[in-house]
Design a protein around this nucleic acid. Structure first.
Lengths: 174, 174
DNA sequence: CATTACTTTCAGTACAAACAGAATATACAG
DNA sequence: CTGTATATTCTGTTTGTACTGAAAGTAATG
């Protein structure tokens, strides 16, 4: 993984852009893409060179990826440096990311909605319209959470199987 | 909707923050929150005042919300100004947003992955590892797309019903 | 325990997105 | 046609995030 092929470059750059669109730092996403494509774990130094970013920037970004749980440090015999490798199971990676974004964004939103509704009862029992809207929104978030919980219970791979089943059934019916 | 209650303020501010985390402009999200809570359509002027942002900023943001299809202009008799109102069906709103983000981000990513794999065949038939990784990622995106398409076929409300069913079944089983 | 290899933290800088306000355009009323 | 109300576009400024390079920190080696 010394030099990038044009193809790898293309993938890494695109992944970086996608990241930014979903509120993920470009460098973080690029590093992830690089590690994902790399057959072996890479030291920070090499990542910095390959992507032309500061060594320190790599350090911070790696740490973020580690908190997501999709990158980890491994040791290579005869080398004092940390080497970093990405998880390779795509489904599991996305599961991790989704789980954490849910915790950080969906759950707090549910909290706010609940608190709003409670306050509404206490202080402004009259404002029916606001209540109606907040309840609709709260219902949505509860449902999404429910959906998520049900998915989580399914063992790995089941989603994929269900998907295949669904496709077949629909094809038969048509 | 002249003055905001503390509660409405809370919701609007939170919604703004959530927006930024998902790559949506804070003002855009706030305006959406305001219109969503408002029982009647509001003129741009009033939105600007209520949220303390520049009139021009409202203009741009509204336009973005219009392109998403979740806000539209309506006319009020005896008033030359445009009044804006938000869609109220939460499920439909999210459906619209998801559909468009898929178009703008998921689909292009699938494109890139396909192109990469094609190029890989043409130019570098040897690089097995890269191919393996790209194929795994491509497979994931295809599956997500498939899942999305299947969901889309379901008539409105079915997701909600399925959800309730799922809950019941699981409760019985336990 | 001093030196070297490596990593993280910190402080300032650069950059891109968001924004305000002015300028311009459009549409309506008299 | 003129003046007024409203909407949009444009330009410069602000703001916040990402980033760099230097400094400090940590740990292994001889």
């Amino acid at each position: 993984m010394a030099e990038l092929t044009g193809l790898q470059k293309q993938y890494i750059l695109h992944w970086g852009e996608m990241g930014t669109r979903w509120g993920i730092n470009r460098t973080v996403a690029q590093i992830h893409a690089l590690l994902y494509l790399s057959p072996c774990a890479l030291p920070a130094e090499e990542i910095a060179e390959t992507l032309s970013v500061a060594r320190s920037n790599v350090s911070t970004s790696i740490r973020e990826l580690e908190t997501w749980g999709i990158v980890r440090a491994v040791h290579v015999l005869g080398d004092r440096r940390e080497h970093y490798e990405s998880m390779k199971d795509v489904w599991e990676m996305f599961r991790l990311v989704i789980e954490q974004r849910k915790r950080r964004e969906i759950d707090p939103t549910r909290e706010v909605l609940r608190r709003c509704l409670a306050e509404l009862d206490a202080k402004e029992p009259g404002s029916d319209y606001t209540r109606e809207r907040l309840e609709a929104m709260a219902g949505f978030f509860e449902a999404v959470t429910e959906l998520y919980d049900q998915m989580k219970r399914l063992p790995t791979g089941t989603v994929r199987k269900l998907l295949r089943m669904g496709t077949k059934v629909r094809k038969k019916a048509s």
